[in-house]
Structure formats: C-alpha cells, structure tokens
Design a protein around this nucleic acid. Structure first.
Lengths: 117, 117
DNA sequence: ATAGTATTTCACTATTGACTTAATTAAGCG
DNA sequence: CGCTTAATTAAGTCAATAGTGAAATACTAT
C-alpha cells in the first residue's frame, strides 16, 4: 500500500481535503488554493493518482479530479486495528509492572512476551 | 497532526505492527525485527513518540514501547470522511455531466473517460 | 494557421530524511 | 569501581523528494 507515502505530505492531504465533499474539481481550481506553482501541485496530483487516491477525468482541456474512496476504505481498516487498542490494556500492564517492581526488584524481563511473527 | 508524516515511513509502520496486540515491547526486541542498526530504529521510535503514536515506559535499563490509541482514533475519524464518499456521488456527477452535455451541444467530450495512470 | 488557455513534463536546485559509525548516557553486576 | 548491556545522541553521508522556471502538449477559439 503506497497510500501512506502519498498521505505523508501535507499539501497532498490538503488537496484531498479540497476534493472531499465536492463532485469533481478542475486542476486550475485546485491550484488556486495554494501559493505553490501549478507544476508543484500537478506533481502532487500525479503521486495521488499513482496511489490511486484520486482519479481524473478529461473534459475538454480540463482535468477534473475526484477522490477515490477504495484505498481510503482499506486505510480505515488498517487503522482500526490500532484504534481498537483499549486503555484498559495499559491499566492492566501498569498494575502488573507495579506489582513486579514491588515483589521482585531483580525481575529483569518483560511482563508479557508474546512473540507474534 | 503529525501522525501522517510518521506513518509515511514503512519501517515505522512495521514497528507499529509489531507493537500492536502486544502489551509492551522492549527496544531491543524491536531492533531484532530489522536488519537496520539499533540507532536507525531508535530514531524511528523517536519520531513515533513525537507524533504521540507510541509511549515509552522505563523499566530498569529497558525502554518498553506501547501503541498509543488516541491519535489512531483521530486518524480513523479523518479517513472515514473519505471512505464514506459514496458511489452515489459519482452517480450524481454522471447526471450533472449528462445535463451539461445536453445543454451545450458544443461540449465535445465524453462524460467518463477513465484515464487510469 | 495563430493565439490563448489548461495542464503537464523537463531539468535543475535545495531541502529533507533515513541510514551508518562512533561516542555518550544510564543501569545492573562482578 | 570497572565491565557489560540497553538505548540513545551526535555527526556525517547519500538518496529521495518538493519546489522552481522553462518548454512541451493538448485542446479551444478567432
């Protein structure tokens, strides 16, 4: 997933924010939102296109850009795994560490060692 | 939100994957998963910490890292806006273009010309 | 055809950032 | 205390990338 790299740039995120909630935005219109030159923005659009985050439609001499929802859905799925981690987990660990520290000051290792992959 | 920049790097994402679903992982353990040198990983951990994506806990001479769920929740929220964009929107666009084409017979182009790549 | 507008590609510079080795801080142990 | 282990900071290199101006492409209109 190249999505992350594409989103790792503020300008590109801003472009997506502009596109969101609109039914297509011409390149010139996008350019207008930035102080950077059109070529700069065009290159960002190219990256977003390569990451499949946007799609383009030719209409005359204009290129109309749209957000592509699919990769966003996948990203959401990826993120959810982490978002789902509970505070509870930290609480539990905190108390375990506390207990171990009190019980055995020699205890050198981790309380949990779940070698997954 | 500096979250995106932090996630824009594959190694850092991998670190998060390692941390996910575990109740704390010591730095050395993390290092073991990569061919890069400890300093390299340590610097990535620093970035993740700065982005508040992980938190650290000192235990003796070890540093135990945990995923921080809050920024992930926010990210999920951000992404959802885009993921939520419905096909419906495209449908609507279809009809708009259709209308424009009918109104202006000079309009030369196709409504959809999927320039993919 | 010629000019004009929309957008991108080219070629280049400057900056950022990821990695490395070496040195440093800090804790545990004989 | 001196040695080892854990982890980080420092300093420097190299590659990736974002930005710029200029040229190119492509469509529209006169």
């Amino acid at each position: 997933m190249d999505t992350f790299t594409a989103l790792g740039e503020p300008t590109r995120r801003h472009i997506l924010e502009i596109l969101a909630g609109r039914n297509g935005t011409a390149a010139t219109e996008i350019y207008g939102n930035f102080k950077a030159t059109p070529p700069a923005i065009s290159q960002h659009l190219k990256v977003l296109k390569a990451a499949n985050l946007v799609r383009v439609e030719k209409r005359g001499q204009k290129r109309i850009y749209f957000v592509n929802p699919e990769p966003m859905k996948q990203l959401e799925k990826w993120v959810r795994r982490f978002a789902a981690i509970k505070e509870e987990q930290f609480q539990r660990l905190d108390s375990v560490l506390e207990r171990m520290r009190l019980e055995d000051s020699n205890a050198p290792m981790l309380p949990f060692e779940q070698t997954d992959e």
